[in-house]
């Protein structure tokens, strides 16, 4: 006998037909967080390796973007809050179980570190810059002397920040598309990749660009690998996860996901970078911009699609 199933569901005008509580602010916040993490990680690593001279854009110039990215990112998070006047309570509580909570704290640590880092290079951009107060000059001298010491926590916190952008989503059991542990590493490499792309855009040194674009190639490869694993994991999962994967495999997000994220955001820039590496003249700006756009669209799609997936009962 053929079975028919009809579910009326609920119909609450201002809540249904489906959950849509996080809008455009959250993907931008996640994108900027990942971008900042990527830049600071590379800046930290190359400082620890002692390559400040060879990798000027990585260590000095690109990190100037980071404080702005983080502050705009936090601004986005603030815009997303519905009870804005109470936002300060994020910083009067420490709740380790809440990804939103410890993410706010990681940003609280990361933003000052990035400001101090950039400030210590400010006089290399504006040689006549005057800090006005003596203690600021003393502090600057101390930072310049101890950059390697700062680079360690900076690189480590950058990894935590990058993973956090994924964990923020993956901690929600109720959204099957997000509820996969691979989302943390995936958003981390995606963030690294966008950070590398930013450095490529800012670098004027050919050797540096070549090295970073090789790294970017590696990040793209790992990212593709993680995406394939994520979808494989969903398809081997429960019905709600199979439904989540199907959003990308024939469902309503198939075209934007494959066209903008996989092809234009990952495969095409990878091919261009490979062509560049084997000797073709390539405007390196094209793959870099594609990677940035791909990363942004990827986060928009993940946030939007995740909110559609749900438990069915």
């Amino acid at each position: 006998m053929k079975e028919e199933l009809f579910v009326s569901g609920r119909n609450i005008p201002n809540i249904d037909p489906y959950l849509n509580i996080w809008h455009w602010q959250i993907p931008i916040y996640l994108f900027l967080g990942g971008l900042a993490a990527g830049i600071l990680f590379l800046a930290g690593v190359y400082t620890i390796l002692g390559k400040e001279k060879e990798m000027q854009a990585t260590v000095k110039w690109a990190p100037f973007i980071v404080p702005f990215a983080l502050i705009i990112g936090l601004g986005m998070l603030f815009l997303d809050l519905k009870h804005k006047l109470y936002f300060w309570q994020l910083y009067t509580t420490i709740r380790l179980q809440s990804p939103m909570g410890w993410g706010a704290w990681v940003l609280m640590i990361m933003t000052p570190i990035s400001i101090i880092w950039s400030a210590s290079y400010l006089r290399e951009v504006f040689p006549n810059w005057d800090w006005k107060f003596k203690f600021l000059c003393t502090f600057e001298a101390w930072v310049i002397k101890n950059r390697k010491l700062i680079a360690w926590p900076m690189a480590i916190y950058a990894v935590i920040l990058g993973i956090y952008t994924g964990i923020l989503l993956s901690a929600f059991n109720a959204r099957p598309l997000w509820n996969t542990t691979i989302l943390g590493p995936l958003f981390l490499v995606s963030g690294m990749s966008t950070g590398a792309a930013t450095i490529i855009l800012m670098s004027k040194n050919h050797e540096e660009r070549k090295l970073i674009s090789r790294l970017d190639l590696l990040f793209i490869a790992v990212e593709l690998f993680f995406i394939v694993h994520m979808i494989m994991g969903f398809l081997a999962g429960s019905q709600v996860q199979i439904d989540a994967a199907n959003l990308f495999l024939g469902g309503q997000f198939t075209v934007p996901f494959f066209v903008f994220v996989i092809i234009l955001g990952l495969l095409f820039p990878a091919v261009l970078e490979i062509l560049e590496l084997i000797g073709f003249k390539m405007p390196i700006i094209i793959p870099a911009i594609l990677v940035l756009l791909g990363g942004l669209i990827f986060r928009f799609i993940m946030v939007e699609a995740g909110q559609i997936t749900r438990y069915l009962y």
Binding site: I21, Q89, L90, R310
Partner: peptide, 23 residues
């Protein structure tokens, strides 16, 4: 104490929570 971040709304498999117009 609620800042209206929406995390709990996302976390509920029953979609029992909503954002009140007051925030």
């Amino acid at each position: 104490k609620c800042i209206g971040c929406g995390a709990c709304i996302q976390s509920c498999p029953y979609e029992a929570r909503y954002s009140h117009p007051d925030g």
